[in-house]
Design a protein around this nucleic acid. Structure first.
Length: 125
DNA sequence: ACATTGACTCGCG
DNA sequence: GCGCGAGCCAATG
């Protein structure tokens, strides 16, 4: 018998969960999501999961980028523009088709905690 | 059953 | 920055 029904495998479920966990205003690469899902080197699977996801799946797909910070869609294409707009809406600038991973990468959160200036470290939002 | 195709990534030149 | 090859592997033809 299958332990997972609804036609969704455990891997896909794990990937979806990780994507939904990306904080607002942050971005993550396909590879990082795969690794966090316990599936290193399975970046392509992440892409497949996103391609097959519909609106009902409710994934913050716009927070997923290529490892170098560029959007996965062709520059200027409709989905490219929509992703750029969604990111901008939550404070993530896309310049020359790419996001500054050093500043907006999910993994950067940890560094922020350790490197953040004391003055701003005290205030949250 | 075989070949191609990707919302990918990384190392090398 | 750019191109190549290798690794990845389910879906598609």
């Amino acid at each position: 018998m299958k332990s997972v029904d609804s036609g969704v495998t455990a891997d896909v479920a794990a990937i979806r969960a990780v994507i939904r966990a990306i904080p607002r205003g942050r971005v993550a690469s396909y590879g990082e999501i795969a690794t966090r899902s316990g599936l290193p080197r399975r970046a392509r699977l992440v892409g497949r999961v996103l391609r097959e996801a519909d609106a009902a799946t409710r994934l913050p797909w716009h927070r997923v980028l290529r490892a170098d910070g560029r959007l996965a869609f062709a520059p200027g294409s409709t989905p490219f523009r929509e992703q750029q707009q969604r990111l901008a809406a939550e404070g993530v600038p896309v310049e020359r088709g790419r996001v500054d991973i050093a500043r907006f990468g999910w993994q950067r959160d940890l560094d922020s905690e350790l490197w953040a200036p004391p003055a701003s470290a005290a205030r949250r939002r």
